[in-house]
């Protein structure tokens, strides 16, 4: 239910039905009459403080700027219209792409598993020698044609080096 002061506020705003407004005016106390005057004071102060003056409004012309913006909008190249796919066809295409990538991933995994491993020879002969006071390691590596490659590793003057024979 509206308070008495809310009724005063509606009366001040001319928002009460005529009969109700007349009845209220007839029974206003001196304090209520003063409240109405006080409301008018604040309203008038607000209007006078907030409303732009005639001088401020005199130069107002929004059309010039608006017209430019409308021209710019019209001059912009028309956007290319692309027909939107239906949700169903988008879903179907997405499922197809997923299936293709899954298949490719599975094939790649299988290929890695079945890939031929490089043949590793374990038929090397390795012997340690002492030559001219220095250590040497001789490694005999046979190949598939029955030939043999020998590698000799010398340890001298704290420098390691390979010599192929």
């Amino acid at each position: 239910m509206a308070s008495r002061d809310q009724l005063l506020s509606r009366l001040h705003d001319n928002e009460l039905p005529a009969a109700e407004a007349d009845a209220l005016r007839a029974e206003l106390s001196p304090e209520e009459q003063q409240k109405l005057v006080a409301l008018s004071d604040v309203d008038a102060a607000l209007k006078n403080a907030l409303l732009p003056t005639e001088t401020e409004l005199a130069g107002l012309d929004l059309w010039a700027g608006l017209s430019d913006k409308l021209d710019a909008a019209n001059a912009a190249p028309a956007a290319q219209v692309i027909a939107l796919e239906s949700a169903r066809s988008r879903r179907r295409r997405s499922i197809g792409i997923t299936a293709i990538f899954s298949t490719l991933a599975a094939a790649a995994g299988l290929l890695l598993l079945l890939r031929a491993k490089p043949a590793i020879s374990n038929r090397c002969d390795i012997e340690e020698l002492e030559v001219a006071g220095e250590n040497a390691t001789v490694i005999h590596i046979p190949d598939e044609h029955g030939r043999e490659t020998a590698l000799i590793w010398f340890d001298h003057q704290e420098t390691d080096q390979w010599e192929s024979l």
Binding site: M1, A2, S3, R4, D5, Q6, L8, S9, E31, E32, Q34, K35, V37, A38, L39, D41, V42, D43, A44, A45, L46, N48, A49, T53
Partner: peptide
């Protein structure tokens, strides 16, 4: 509604509101 805080003030402005600007 109806509490003291819900009351309008009867106090008038000390200044002429027309000169608020």
């Amino acid at each position: 509604a109806g509490s003291p805080a819900d009351a309008l003030s009867p106090g008038r402005l000390r200044f002429d509101p027309a000169k608020a600007l």
